[in-house]
Every structure is written in C-alpha cells, then in structure tokens.
C-alpha cells in the first residue's frame, strides 16, 4: 500500500510547488494592480511626499514588476515575508501565531460537519420513500441555504445571550493565559496537564465549530444518502441479505464502507471552502486566527500579510487534499490495482 501512496504524494508535491508558484504570481500581480501604495501605507499620515519616495526606493517599489516579483519570491523561499505595514512586525511570526488557531478550528469544525453529515445522511436514507422524506429533504435544503455567519449569530443569541450557557469571544476565559507550545490550544493544554485550560478552550470552540460544522454538513448528508441508495442496488448487498446478515451489519460492514468514499472526496473539497469560511466566523467570535488577521490586513491594505495569508491558505488546502487523496487510496482497494 505504501508503494502506491508514496508516488501519489510525490506527484502531489511536484504539482503543489507548481500551484504555489502560480498562486504566488497571481497574488503578487493582483495586489500590485490595486490602487494601494505600500510605501505610503507604511508611514504615518503626516509623512511628506519625499518621505514616501524614500520609502518606495527602500522597499524596492521603483524596480520593474518582474524584478520585484523575483525578489519577493526569493525572500518567500527563504521564509521571509517581510514586515507587516500595520503591526510593523515580521509577517511570518504573525502568521505562525495565528495559523494553529485556525487549523484547530477548521479541523474540529470538519469533524462536526462529518459527524452531523453522516448521521443526517443515515437519517435521510432511513426515511427515503416514506412520508417523512419530504420533511428530511426540506430540512437538509434549509441547512444548506443558511450560511455559517448566520448560524454564528443565531448561536450567539441562543447560547450566549439568552441561555448564557457558552462563551463566544476569544479562545480562553480571561483568568487563563495561553500555555506555551505549538499554538494548538487543546493539545498544548493537555501537554501542560491543564485540564481547566483544556475545558475553557473547548467551551470557547463549541459555538464557532458548530457554526461552521452545521453549515457544511448538509452537502455531506445529501451525498451520503445518494451513495447509500446506489450501494444498496449492488449485488453484494442482495447477497449479504440472502446470507441472512442483519440490516445493521449490512449497513455498517458493507454499505457504509463503500458509500463513504464519495463523501470523503467531498469532505476534502469542502475542507478548503470551510478553511476559507473561518474568516467571517473568526471575526464574529473574536477568535484570534488567520481569518481575523486577514480581515485586519484587508482593512489596513497590509499587502505583506495578505500575500502571506493567501499562500498559507493555499498550502493548507493542498496538504489536506493530498491527505484526503491518500486516504481515498487506502480505503478503496480498486484504486490500488493498476
């Protein structure tokens, strides 16, 4: 199996480098045609035109565009994204500080989306052909049509304001300080043996993760239901039934295992969209991740951050897609046969 997966990862890596180069070029070009002058932005409003011109030369903005791109790219290859215009700090340190929070949020949200999607898909499959089917259909369409930020506001009103059951700002209660470590708060809290911090972090993640998870679950539900309907037409299901296997065993051991594959592919694609969807949810829940940083960057026309965050999104999505494709290969023996 490893012999099959390694070449795939190798091909993916080569492809990823190409994709990253294209994305970096697009990011660079798009941001450089915007009517924004990074030199002017990096100086206080009281700066003179001479100050700005000096800064333009210092930043290399007077050079031809291809040369500027190559200089920028060579810095990026050496992990130097420059300094933020707004924060006047290394962009890499800012992205490094915020990326783990967003990955943690996105992964937990995806787990919730998968759990809700699979349970919902099973329910929809269960009620197919019955009088409950239109209701289940309607429910899934309604879920599909509500975006994540509306769920976020809805949850804040219900669980935050009305019931006052869950916190909805930040990552931790005010009495706690972030434990040193990887930036993945749940992991760091456990590694430090601080269950109180773990619990506080977990509570802070419930509402943002459910907002994202619920918004992304209906597509999984619908694909799983369709896959199950297809799988139940296969001969091996009929044979299993003739062998006297229980419906539960048929579902879990035979049908679900095969029907889950298209769902897995979909989840791979959805993770990229969900990762982008963290942007608004992070702002609403004051969650200090990459999305929140990006919103600041856009507001302040902080081009170095926008470029770095754009690339960071791209890298994460490429990694996840490679992982999902490898998983697909592991779970589907047919693909391993040439």
């Amino acid at each position: 199996m490893i012999a099959t997966i390694l070449p795939l990862i190798g091909r993916r890596l080569v492809m990823s480098v190409l994709i990253l180069l294209i994305v970096s070029l697009l990011l660079f070009l798009v941001l450089h045609v915007l009517p924004v002058d990074p030199a002017a932005m990096s100086l206080p409003p009281t700066a003179t035109i001479a100050d700005i011109e000096a800064m333009r030369r210092e930043m290399g903005l007077d050079l031809p565009l291809p040369q500027q791109y190559l200089i920028w790219l060579s810095h990026v290859i050496h992990a130097d994204f420059g300094n933020s215009i707004h924060f006047r700090r290394s962009v890499l340190s800012l992205v490094g500080e915020t990326l783990p929070a967003t990955i943690e949020l996105a992964v937990l949200s995806m787990i919730i989306a998968a759990a809700l999607g699979i349970v919902g898909g099973l329910v929809m499959f269960h009620v197919r052909g019955s009088r409950k089917e239109p209701i289940a259909d309607l429910g899934s369409i309604m879920l599909l049509s509500i975006p994540e930020f509306l769920w976020a506001l809805f949850f804040i009103l219900i669980f935050g304001v009305a019931l006052q059951a869950l916190p909805f700002t930040g990552r931790l209660d005010p009495q706690f300080r972030l434990p040193q470590g990887t930036g993945f708060l749940l992991f760091d809290a456990l590694a430090a043996g601080r269950l109180d911090i773990f619990w506080s972090a977990f509570k802070h993640m419930i509402l943002p993760c459910f907002s994202l998870g619920i918004a992304f679950s209906p597509a999984i539900m619908r694909v799983l239901r369709s896959s199950l309907i297809d799988v139940y037409q296969e001969d091996y299901i009929h044979l299993a039934r003739l062998r006297g296997l229980s419906e539960r065993r048929i579902l879990i051991r035979h049908a679900l295992k095969n029907a889950i594959l298209p769902t897995l592919s979909l989840m791979g694609v959805q993770f990229g969209i969900l990762f982008g969807g963290t942007l608004l949810v992070e702002v609403i829940f004051s969650y200090p991740g990459l999305g929140n940083l990006m919103v600041d960057a856009v507001r302040n026309a902080d081009l170095p951050i926008i470029q770095a965050v754009g690339l960071a999104y791209c890298v994460v999505v490429l990694i996840i897609n490679t992982v999902v494709d490898s998983l697909y290969l592991v779970l589907n023996p047919k693909l391993r046969v040439r």
Partner: peptide, 28 residues
C-alpha cells in the same frame, strides 16, 4: 425496501448527542 432498523439508527443518533451531558456544568 431495505430499512435500517430503528434501533440501529437511534444508536447512531445517540453518538451525536453523547457529550450533551458535558454541557450540564458549562453554564457560564
């Protein structure tokens, strides 16, 4: 029709609400 047993479905749904108990002490 090949219905999943109601009991099976309920057991699966149960997984989704395990942990609801953990909210019991989470009133802020």
């Amino acid at each position: 029709t090949h219905e999943i047993e109601r009991r099976t479905l309920l057991q699966m749904l149960g997984l989704g609400v395990v942990g609801s108990g953990v909210f019991a002490d989470s009133l802020v």
